[in-house]
Amino acid sequence: MSETYNFTIDGKEITGRPGQTILQAADEAGVYIPRLCAHKELCAHGSCRVCTVMVNGRPQSACTQPAGAGMVVENETPKLLGMRKQLIDMLFVEGNHFCMFCEKSGNCELQGLAYRFGIMAPQHPYMFQKKDVDASHPDIYIDQNRCIVCARCVRASHDVDGKSAFGFVGRGIHKKIAFNAEHNLSETKLAATDMAAGICPVGAIIKKRVGFAIPVGQRKYDTKPIGSDIEKR
């Protein structure tokens, strides 16, 4: 086909289609590039930076960078793996993550990446920031201790659900999720059936009463590492 083009990731020949990002083309070719904020049903955000690859020697986030003919992409180099590990680490110390009693354990993408990268304990010091918890909504609760500011819920609610239940306030380390309401989450139009309620990569947005429906040990990343679904293709 004349419309396709070729480029390489770590020397492997990849075929891309017009309009694809490096991440999308890599996924199709069975090459896993770690990511957190990116989600196949949402527009790219480019905030976690975990998917950063070297494109012709320059760093670019794979989720936002369009693939192109002849590109030379580096993905699994020791340098990039080390830096990604640092980013995952940063997300742990920025929040207050207690995997051992989090409902999301085993289904958590941050935890999954930590295991994939062999992180036993963070190398950065914990920040122990005080974060808000909102349990006002009848079906959903939000624990910002676990939020990684990836904007998946913001994008899903705005772009897919058409509700704009979430947004961001503050800046720097104080940037956080806020609700489209004067007081709390229950005042928003958010429903448990919304995409925004089920798209959180970590345990920040949890549906009530179903947290342990699937027992620990039988969850998504309990037996296979994160990314293995892509690598198997």
Binding site: G46, R49, L87, I148, V149, G170, G172, I173, K175
Partner: peptide
């Protein structure tokens, strides 16, 4: 820092 991306925010 605007806080958008991890490496700058943290």
């Amino acid at each position: 820092s605007c806080g958008y991306c991890t490496p700058c925010r943290v």
